[in-house]
Computed example of a mutant assay.
Amino acid sequence: MRRLPALIPALISALISAAALAATTTAPAAEAKALPAPVACNGCWKPALNTSWQWQLSSLPTKPYPNVQMFDIDGFAAKDGAIVKSLKADKPGRGVVCYISAGTYEDWRPDASQFPSEVLGKPLEDWPGERWLDVRKYTGKLGQIMKARLDMCKAAGFDAVEPDNVDGYANDSGFPLKAADQLAYNTWFANEAHKRGLSVALKNDVEQIPALLPYFDFAVNEECWEHTECTTAQNDDYGYDQFVKAGKAVFNVEYNLATSAFCAKSNAQNFNSLKKKYELDAYRVPCRGA
């Protein structure tokens, strides 16, 4: 689902003291030290840098399937495993990714009644029935719900998981979420996926790429070309080129741009980019390959 960043970068005053500057430069290191060690996912399916794909969430794929190497589909819609099995039988070696929301409550999901009221935050603009979650509470009931969702993905035969909305700290969530809170939750989630033999995609959360890169196996992004935030050259400290440099695939979707405005740039970065509609139905225009 399309997620636009809600934070406006603060202006830095010329009168900041040297002590304050030292504090800001040491804070990220302190946060990084508090993170758990990454859990290895030896033997997990991991997409190659150049991987053709389809991202279809509003419905399940139907035959004849596009001749792509990876499908990313809704986990709850495919929880019986039938479509996952069919997609794999259609093309041996094809990876199938389980989409779930890890940072929001969705009132239409079958486990919606399990979410305690204290973890439910503000509604998401333009997404009826969806509310931000207090991800700081992952050590309690919220974590149990997410573990059950990962178990569902594993039982259905998925190879990987795409957790959406893992950037609540950068939005008006209704909770005082900090960058460190998001890092703690995202690394915990990635480790839990790996414990189950599932590779895991980092969805958006562009600013935290440097810290999260060791935990995530590939990346899924929406609209980084439209918002001029795809590469380290654009952002100074973070960018999806860091995934590619680490040998990890990047999957990008643009909705509003013409393919002529982003495909050449994506191909030059070795990104796997598509033009899609907001509905995320079967429509797709790939920048390269099938």
Rank of each mutant, 00 (worst) to 15 (best):
T26N: 14
E279M: 13
F115A: 10
H227L: 08
D281M: 05
N272Q: 07
N42P: 05
P66H: 04
K248R: 13
E223W: 08
R136A: 09
K122C: 01
A20F: 06
L274N: 03
F271N: 15
P28E: 05
R288S: 08
D237N: 15
T24M: 10
T51S: 12
L15F: 14
L177Y: 13
V206A: 12
E125L: 00
G239Q: 09
I209W: 06
E222S: 14
D281S: 15
K137E: 13
Y215D: 11
L87V: 01
Y283S: 12
D134S: 15
K85Q: 11
N186K: 12
W127E: 08
W55D: 00
K203A: 01
Q208V: 01
A34Y: 05
W55I: 01
A180W: 01
L11P: 00
A77W: 02
Q144Y: 03
S273K: 01
F271W: 08
K147M: 03
D164Y: 10
S17Q: 11
G81S: 11
A102E: 06
D205G: 06
A180D: 06
S260D: 12
L120C: 00
P64E: 04
F216R: 13
N272K: 13
K79R: 07
D134Q: 14
Q182S: 13
G81Y: 07
A78T: 01
L280Q: 01
T104R: 14
Q242Y: 05
T26Q: 11
G81C: 10
V84R: 12
I8D: 02
Y240E: 02
G93T: 08
L183A: 10
K147E: 09
C224F: 04
C287R: 05
L7C: 09
